[in-house]
Simulated scan of single mutants.
Amino acid sequence: MDSYEKLSYVSITPHAEFLRNFVANTICHSCKTSQRKRCINMADDHNLCSECYKTAVFSIERLPYIVHNLRKFYRQFNLKVDKNIPIFLTDKVEMRKEFDDKTTHSMTVYAKKSTTLVIKNCLWQGEKMEAVKEPKKLSKISILLRFGYPDVITGARLAHEMMNVWLGNKGCMDIQQNIKEGICKVMAYKWLDWYFCNYVDSSSDNGRLGLRYIQIYKPEIESNRAFRGAKMAVDKYGLKHTLKHIVNTRNLPDVNQATALVKIMNEPNEINTVLLAQEEMVEQRTSRKMGLIFS
């Protein structure tokens, strides 16, 4: 018998269960505030405060809503990602089996028929929340996400991996890792802006928490060198043309010497005009909204 079948589950609300099992005077690994809070210790060895706990993704039932929003986000750039790609939640242990990197929170697995353990749901066992796992056979392309993180953060990581999948579908499996990571991080960054404009209500507690996540994770992305190189190209030429250049040349457009790409951009094209206008609108809305909040 699977040891998880022996777990007892007390039928009370999840938040009440949190309050019964919290550990005091701990720093939350999601909102990362310097203020020590009452947190639970996850089975995945990260601490989660009561605020982050309310929006954290513990089971696959929470994924469809996030995926739906991600597809809306991608559609604004006329980018389509295969709807049938399996997306699984997993933990640090299983993630390291697939990719030996302690900092990895999401990944895309290609051409692997092996079986991995994914998160089915979570139950309380004493003072810890334990993940109930089940074996799943990974298909040709699968996305793995670390469980137990708030939906905003999970969405940003999924935006990253969806660009990874998009590049793979365009035959760009062989591009340099820094180019791939850079453009994927650009999409995660753009997702945070898009989410802020569409879903963050600064007058509510959840809205302020969502803003907190964005304030934390955008600087983390900005500190990455690969991201900065990709963002310079996207800022100069737009996302559409940057992606087209990557697909055609396996490289980023040169932000200093790209006369051919500039010529293409200057050609009248209704789709190009619409896409660039959409990108500028999102950036302008974000700037105005941030100004209102912090003025």
Rank of each mutant, 00 (worst) to 15 (best):
residue 206 N to S: 11
residue 204 S to W: 03
residue 218 K to P: 04
residue 244 K to I: 11
residue 251 N to I: 00
residue 231 K to G: 01
residue 231 K to H: 05
residue 198 N to P: 00
residue 204 S to K: 14
residue 196 F to R: 08
residue 200 V to L: 02
residue 254 D to L: 11
residue 247 V to K: 13
residue 247 V to F: 10
residue 261 L to R: 04
residue 255 V to Q: 04
residue 234 V to A: 12
residue 190 K to D: 06
residue 235 D to N: 13
residue 247 V to M: 12
residue 257 Q to K: 15
residue 243 L to T: 00
residue 250 R to N: 15
residue 221 I to T: 12
residue 251 N to A: 14
residue 217 Y to Q: 06
residue 213 Y to H: 13
residue 248 N to W: 08
residue 213 Y to C: 06
residue 197 C to V: 07
residue 238 G to W: 04
residue 190 K to A: 10
residue 195 Y to E: 03
residue 245 H to K: 11
residue 243 L to V: 02
residue 230 A to I: 05
residue 196 F to T: 06
residue 265 M to V: 13
residue 244 K to L: 13
residue 218 K to I: 11
residue 193 D to V: 06
residue 221 I to S: 06
residue 228 R to L: 12
residue 247 V to T: 08
residue 205 D to A: 15
residue 233 A to E: 02
residue 227 F to R: 10
residue 200 V to Q: 04
residue 231 K to C: 04
residue 241 H to V: 00
residue 241 H to P: 00
residue 244 K to G: 05
residue 250 R to T: 01
residue 218 K to V: 09
residue 224 N to P: 00
residue 232 M to K: 15
residue 224 N to T: 09
residue 215 Q to G: 03
residue 193 D to S: 09
residue 200 V to D: 03
residue 240 K to N: 10
residue 220 E to F: 07
residue 237 Y to D: 06
residue 255 V to H: 05
residue 243 L to A: 01
residue 225 R to F: 10
residue 218 K to G: 03
residue 252 L to N: 00
residue 216 I to H: 08
residue 201 D to H: 10
residue 238 G to N: 08
residue 225 R to H: 13
residue 255 V to R: 05
residue 250 R to S: 14
residue 241 H to C: 02
residue 238 G to R: 02
residue 239 L to T: 03
residue 194 W to K: 08
residue 211 L to P: 00
residue 264 I to M: 09
residue 193 D to H: 12
residue 227 F to H: 08
residue 228 R to M: 09
residue 244 K to E: 10
residue 232 M to A: 15
residue 190 K to C: 00
residue 257 Q to M: 14
residue 203 S to F: 03
residue 266 N to L: 10
residue 225 R to K: 14
residue 211 L to R: 13
residue 239 L to W: 04
